[in-house]
Structures are given as structure tokens and as C-alpha cells.
Design a protein around this nucleic acid. Sequence first.
DNA 1: CCGGTGCAGATTGTATACAATCTAATTGAC
DNA 2: GTCAATTAGATTGTATACAATCTGCACCGG
Lengths: 244, 244
Amino acid sequence: MTMNTPKPNPPKRADQIAKSLEDMIFQGEFADGDRLDEQRLAERFGTSRTPVREALQKLSVSGLVAQIPQRGVFVQQPGPVELMEMFEVMAELEAVCGRFAAIRITDEALDQLRHANQLCQQAVDEGDTDGYYFHNEDFHRIIYSQSGNRFLEQEARRLSRRLRPFRRIQLRLRGRMRQSLDEHLAVVQALTDSDPEGAGNALRDHVAVQNEKFHHLMNSFEDRGSAPEKARAERPEGGSRRRA
Amino acid sequence: MTMNTPKPNPPKRADQIAKSLEDMIFQGEFADGDRLDEQRLAERFGTSRTPVREALQKLSVSGLVAQIPQRGVFVQQPGPVELMEMFEVMAELEAVCGRFAAIRITDEALDQLRHANQLCQQAVDEGDTDGYYFHNEDFHRIIYSQSGNRFLEQEARRLSRRLRPFRRIQLRLRGRMRQSLDEHLAVVQALTDSDPEGAGNALRDHVAVQNEKFHHLMNSFEDRGSAPEKARAERPEGGSRRRA
DNA sequence: CCGGTGCAGATTGTATACAATCTAATTGAC
DNA sequence: GTCAATTAGATTGTATACAATCTGCACCGG
């Protein structure tokens, strides 16, 4: 056994297509009710329809697209309400991670958090929004990880990824980066003190503010810009009404 | 427009296969590392490999199976640790639902909760485990719904469904049904009092106890039964280690 | 002029065919 | 006799072909 290369993982298959489509949807490359044409995507990716279909199946499970049986798949961009709801859940998930982490976090991880914050500070000084955005994500992921609950970590990362593009926007608000950094410091303080409630509340507020700022920003856009009056393309399934 | 039949949804396609496979996995019809053979499943469902493959793609997103690029898909039954983690998250999700619901719940929903509890009581009196199991689920779903957050409701239902088979087991413990019902009453009381923290804590504890009882039961099985020493079939990817 | 029927094009869903890769068994060498 | 390499079978991944359904327009009748 010279070099087992534990997972040489033959690079992969074409659910790279799924990743690509996911990114494209996140990037806002498609509007809310757009139909994703299999054939079009197939030639766009230089493959046949088969891998594209499989990718679309995956996306439909994630809720990024909706599949209407004999019609096609349609992208599902979250509306303002859904977005608010997702941010609310994100805040609670982060709070839980923080509560758990306050008890379980290692000194090493605490140092990593402080280091991430230093990099954030640097980004603030340089006005580097992208840099802040990046190291901020690091900061939060460390906390997810230190919750000591892999499943929770996964879920938190999943939702965080989904909200990523929307989180990014609010950082551009004047003074938001510095404020965010201050909130990070409060989180680290509570974690250092092994204060579960403190850490949880600090993180919940931190995310809740993001949500607030984001919506504030969106409203200001709507006020001065054109009314977005999106002709929502017949959402296939609104809510699961169920009569008990 | 006589009868638009809003969703005549040609109720077909072969992600019924996905549903079926999901149920089969939940039912424990497959062991942990089992490979799901496309061809076998195809003839089992009377179709070609194509729909089966699409179903498997979906399952892989849900995390019920793991896909190893050129080898096949393998069922992923949660181990004891993962299960504990999932219950822990479930407890926290329920707690959040309870906190939200305490403020937002309607009187009508409160009545529904009491009604569900009556049916639970009846099931306890009759020793009807299945009945209790069913109405218990109703009880919890009402609370999810009353959180006033559709996204949260969805997530809670998703995880609840995943844990369903494991939750069921612990009900068979002596006196567990009655205890569970008492906990339900405490939840309703807190919700009636519009006490967010009380409702959250009551629900968290309620679920945490389920977890505890479940593991207690599993351990007793292991003690008297054969050592399960499952030769875990090389979990494809343990954790995503990432060096920043 | 308006509404319904039917047909043509297009698109999704399924089946089959083919290429690439992996598994494992046989065979050969040390 | 044991270990390694090669080769045959099986299985996954992709492409293509075909069937079923839907969309929209033209045509026809009232």
C-alpha cells in the first residue's frame, strides 16, 4: 500500500450540472417562473437530455424548481415572505448552534473564530465587501461545526447556502460591515464565557438584523425603481392544505 | 368554467418509485450498506432503468442513500449517533415552533389541539398504540402549522417524517403513552397562556424524552439480542473536512 | 363575430442501445 | 502455495429512439 488515495473519487458525473444550475439559480440568472428547457440546457452543457433531467430531479427535491408532471420544471425563486421565513429559521438554527457550541467549543476553535474576525476586521478597514463576506461565512461555519452535532451542522450549512446570495446584499449597507463585526465580537465573548443563552441570543439577533437590513434594502429598491409586480407564473403548489 | 379541477395533476410518473423506495427504506426493508440495484428495482417496479435512476437521484438528495460515482447507490440508515443528533435537532425545531405558536396560535387551533389530545386519551384508554401514534402526529403538525412560518413548518414535517419509524418504537414502553399525553397537556397549557418559553421548553423536553426512551429501548435490545456489530459498508463520505 | 373541434408542432416521459468503468475469477509467475 | 496481473462479466453513465401528452393555431359551425 504505497498511496491508497482513500477517495480518488473518479472526478465525478454530471450532477456538476446540478451544481451549475443551482449556482445559476442562486445567482439570479433565471426569473421566478421561468421554465427550464431540457433540450436547451442539454446543448448548453454539451450533453444529452439524460444528465440534465437527473440534475433537474435533484433540484426539485431541494425546492429550487417545481416539477409539473407533463409540463416541465419551473424555477422557484423565494418571494419576500418565504425569504423572511427562511431568515427567521436561519436565525433560530444559528441560535441553537450557538447554545450548543457555548458548552462544547474547543479553545482551538475559539482561536479560529478570533482569527476569522481579525480577517473580517481587515476587510472592513479595506472596504473589501467580498473579503468580509467570505470570512464571515467562515466564522459562522466554525460555530455550526462546534455545535457538536453533525446533523445540525449540515442543516445549518444547507440553509446558509440557500440564503447566501440574499445575505450578501445587505452587507453593502453603510456601516453594516462594522456593525456585523461588533455582533461577531459579542458572540465570541459569550462563547468564551460558556454562556449558552448569551451566545444563542447574540447569534439570533445577528441574523435577524441581516434579515431586517435586507428587507429594508429591498423596499428602498422597490420605492425608487420600477414596481417589480412579478407576474408569478402560477405557483404549482402553494401550501399543503390538509383537512384533518 | 364548470369544474376546473384545479389539480387534476395526472397523478402519475415514476417518482412514485421514489416514494415507494423511501417508504421501503423507512420501513427498514433494507439494511444499512445495501446496494440498490437499478436493474433489479426496474423489473421489480415493471419499468426500465430510467425512472428508477431518477428516483434514486432524488433519494440521494434527501440523504436516504449515498451515491458513489461508478459503483452504485447504497442505503444510508442513520446510526445511533446520527439518530441522536437528529432527535436533538427535532427537539429544537419543535421548541422553536412552540415559541412562535405561543404568540400566533388561534383559538380554533387550540381547540384542535385539545381535540387531538382527547383522541390520544381515548387511544391510551384502549391501549391502542397505533391510534395514539396517529393522533400524536396530528397534535405536533398543528403546532408546526401554528408557528406561522410555512418554511419552518415544512422543515419540521420533513424531519418528523424521517424520524417517524424510530419515534414509533418508544411508544411501546410501559406507561410511555400516558406520560407523553401528560406532556402534551403541559404544552397546551403553555400555549393557552401565551407563554413562549414554557411552550418551547415543554416541547423540547417532550421530544428529548422520546429520544431518551428510544435509546434506552435500543440498548436493552442490544444487551439481550445478538451484538449488532454491523460491518458498516464503508461510508462513502464521513464528514466534509475543509481547510480554509 | 364568437366559440368549439381538430390537427400539427413541440416537449416531456420512458425504453433501449452503447460506451466506460468496476468486480471478481481465472491463470500464470515466483 | 501464495500473490499478482489479466481478462471476462456485470453495472453504471450517457446517448438516442420512441410513445404520450400538452400548446397553440387554424378551420369550421352556429
